[in-house]
Computed example of a mutant assay.
Amino acid sequence: MKKFGLLLAGGIAAVILLSTIGPLVGLAVSLVLLYFIFKQFVKADSTWAKVGLGIIGFVVLMASIHNTPAIIGIAAAYVLYLVYKKWNGTKSTVIKEESDPFANFEKQWNEMKHY
């Protein structure tokens, strides 16, 4: 039953992720453009160049805000990642006592105190 729930959640997340591919690509492109426009804005010396780059940057910022459904796609990708992690049974790494240097230090310290 657990596998069926994971399969259902993964299927729904995959469909949502596939339906938001367009906004994801649009958001990525607009954020890259915004980054380069900002770098040119900082380098610009003249006031008119800064005004022009500011206007272009504002337009690109509005385009990236327009792609807010991409946030749902990012959340769906994260859910898909969690389903994949649970399906394969990978667990978070737990430090074993023999490999933990602090636990080993405590054990050796207690042995030294007895001598």
Results as ranks from 00 to 15, higher is better:
K91G: 02
S64L: 06
T47M: 14
K107Q: 02
A70M: 03
A44E: 08
W48L: 13
L6Q: 03
V83P: 00
A14K: 06
V29K: 13
V94Y: 06
K39W: 06
G22L: 13
S64C: 11
W87N: 00
V51M: 08
K2W: 11
V83T: 08
F4D: 14
E97P: 00
G11W: 12
V25D: 08
G10D: 10
M112F: 10
I71Y: 14
Y35E: 14
Q108K: 06
A103I: 07
A103T: 09
K50R: 15
E97I: 01
G89C: 00
E98N: 04
T20R: 15
A70G: 05
N110I: 09
L53Q: 07
F58A: 15
W87R: 02
W48I: 12
I71S: 10
V79Y: 05
Y115G: 04
A28D: 10
V32H: 03
A63Y: 09
L61G: 13
I21E: 00
L18C: 08
D100T: 03
T90S: 02
S92I: 09
S30H: 08
F58S: 14
L80V: 01
N67H: 12
E97Y: 00
G22F: 09
M62L: 14
V60Q: 04
L7E: 05
L53S: 12
K3F: 08
P23M: 11
V83W: 02
I56C: 06
V94M: 04
F105Q: 02
Y81A: 08
A75Q: 08
P69E: 05
D100W: 06
V15K: 13
K107P: 00
F102R: 01
K2F: 11
V60K: 03
F41R: 09
S30Y: 09
W87K: 01
I71G: 04
N67C: 02
H114G: 01
S19V: 13
V25N: 13
A28Y: 14
L33Q: 15
V15G: 08
K2M: 11
G26S: 14
P23T: 10
L24M: 15
G11N: 06
A13N: 05
E111G: 02
K91E: 09
V94I: 10
M1R: 11
I16F: 07
S92F: 08
N104K: 01
S30L: 06
N110E: 11
A9T: 09
I74Y: 05
A14R: 05
T47W: 07
P101Q: 00
V29N: 11
L31D: 14
A63W: 10
I21T: 14
W87D: 00
V25W: 12
V42M: 13
V79H: 04
Y115H: 07
Q40E: 15
N88M: 03
A14T: 07
I16Y: 04
I12K: 07
S99I: 01
K91N: 05
A103P: 02
K39S: 07
G10M: 07
T47V: 14
D45A: 15
V94Q: 07
G54K: 09
E111P: 00
L24C: 12
L17K: 11
T47F: 06
N104M: 03
T93A: 11
V51D: 06
G54P: 13
E106W: 03
L61F: 14
E98Q: 03
